[in-house]
Design a protein around this nucleic acid. Structure first.
Lengths: 331, 331
DNA sequence: TTGTAAGCGTTATCAG
DNA sequence: CTGATAACGCTTACAA
């Protein structure tokens, strides 16, 4: 492709009648530091502007051994929570002088592995991952090779720092509220039981029951995965088991809620009085039920995880963080 | 950061007792081509595997003048349509041997400019953009510097190839259906009138009216932007002007629909009998109205735009494409 | 205040 | 079949 040509710093230097060094110094804003003559500086800058000079990032990276990129690996970009995270993280990275590389693992451990290896090849300076496996050893190996932070999910007993939503408290208060409002039967639909968010959400649910002096009954807790059809089938089976809809239903994700509502709409045989879900979406405002939802703070999830990779990159050690969520209450 | 070390190809070569050249050949799968001894090959590969050798992408890029990356610039990652596009594009790029760099412009022309310049610095080999300005000259300049394809939106009279949804036909049939079902008043809410998708959607609406022998009345077409509050205010003003809800309402985006529904839910004074919207979401299944929606084919939008940048990168000229959308009908 | 020269890790050319 | 050696475009001691 010679159709698209680029000028190099050498070219700029030649055109401005200075050496590579001078050009480099000026173009990197270090002219003051080296007391480059104002006139020289202006000349170089003018030429550079005029010719749309773009320094080669690869040469910089090669020389400086820093790529100026950070990687973000999420299971699904079409998952609203993860998309919001990427959306929030991208400008923050740019401000911090880094380019964000976003990849998705499609919720498959194998693709995740490939993705991380790929990002390593690309020499990302740091990595933020929403892990989709719970195999700590694998991640530990990577964490020896580059700064690694988990976000949204963490792995039990794994020393890699993480930034996750404090689901427990949020879910607890939701459950407590529902019971205070008169619910006597509170059912929980969740996803993969081995994922940390699932565990946290379930723990929150159980704590809510406990605080309200209620004892968990058989067929109150259902766990499968976060796919829509699972929401549908759990609702179907739950209805069949109980013989009616529970007073209250908490779903661990929007997709599960969608599945459950699909069943409810299809059967037209009633519905739970209280609906609660993890994660929020504006369309929830438009539903005929007043759904209570837990809103994750993707802005803070993003900034806190960025701060942590940046610190790791400077050799500091960092702690993990629980980001509190807020509730979106609907009448 | 000496904490995280990497082996270079030189190291591998030394450990395997071969030269850089041989190591390079083997590691790039060109051993057959150069008839490298099987034993040598195995030795090199074994060492490389054992030491987790990661070739430096920057060195490769520098030498080969190809970065192996493609850029995707979207206005908003939290917009479902754009997120789906990114999600669909990313694996395709990887299959094609490219790493996708996703950036978002926040729907601001200035950020878009900065983003493109940034990607140029990163030496992306090609660029796929959802343009957020309609200034053709600017984009034309860039298209001289690297292969550029528009997706989702195009710019009138701009020779840059684009891949967009064929909104006209889809919207037309939606409108025709609504009228066939008895609607006598069909209102249109749209976003920025200067964006091509807006124009197409409006054109589809008008064609639908025309085909049904209906004449557009005053206060039937409302255009502002695609933000949620605009949907709310257009609904409010429309209701006030007409004195009632129209039989049918078409919204140009989910956000506008959300806004309109927020008004409707808040006032509890009725609602349009037919609701239609551009773009689809699973939560639409859960609404108490049977909303008809236009489903964009993000998979094809992604693959067709990728094909086009790849062709441009090989110096071929390419045409634009309209991707047909499907309808998601709900009872 | 500016220039010279030595790499960074690869790939490519050309000899053995 | 394998090995020197020269770029690629940039940064940075070290000179001048």
């Amino acid at each position: 492709m010679s159709q698209f040509i680029r000028l190099t710093m050498d070219d700029i230097a030649r055109l401005a009648n200075v050496s590579k060094t001078t050009a480099s110094l000026v173009l990197n804003g270090r002219s003051a530091e080296y007391r480059i003559a104002e006139s020289t500086k202006e000349r170089v800058l003018a030429i550079a502007r005029e010719h749309h000079f773009q320094p080669s990032q690869s040469a910089k990276t090669l020389r400086s051994r820093k790529s100026g990129t950070l990687g973000l690996l999420v299971p699904e970009l079409s998952n609203f929570a993860h998309a919001s995270l990427a959306q929030a993280l991208e400008p923050l990275c740019r401000e911090a002088g880094y380019q964000l590389l976003v990849m998705s693992s499609n919720e498959q451990a194998s693709m995740e592995t490939a993705g991380i290896e790929h990002l390593l090849t690309r020499q990302v300076d740091g990595l933020i991952v929403v892990p989709c496996s719970s195999d700590a050893t694998q991640y530990l190996k990577w964490s020896l090779r580059l700064p690694l932070v988990f976000v949204d999910r963490h792995i039990k007993d794994c020393p890699i720092p993480f930034v996750v939503t404090d689901a427990i408290d949020a879910v607890t208060s939701l459950v407590v509220q529902a019971i205070a409002a008169g619910s006597r039967e509170v059912v929980y639909f969740g996803g993969q039981a081995d994922l940390s968010p699932s565990q946290d959400r379930l723990a929150g649910y159980r704590k809510g029951l406990e605080l309200s002096g209620m004892t968990e009954q058989e067929h109150w807790v259902w766990q499968r995965d976060y796919l829509r059809p699972s929401g549908y089938s759990m609702m179907a089976e739950c209805y069949e088991r109980l013989g009616h809809y529970p007073d209250s239903l908490f779903t661990g994700s929007l997709t599960l809620l969608e599945g459950a509502l699909a069943y409810i709409n299809e059967k037209q045989n009633g519905s739970p009085a209280h609906l609660m879900t993890f994660d929020d979406h504006n369309l929830l405002n438009c539903l005929p039920w007043g759904i209570q939802s837990v809103v994750q703070d993707s802005q803070r999830l993003a900034s806190e995880s960025l701060v942590r990779v940046l610190k790791l990159m400077q050799g500091e050690t960092v702690d993990s963080a629980w980001i509190s969520a807020s509730l979106h209450q609907r009448p």
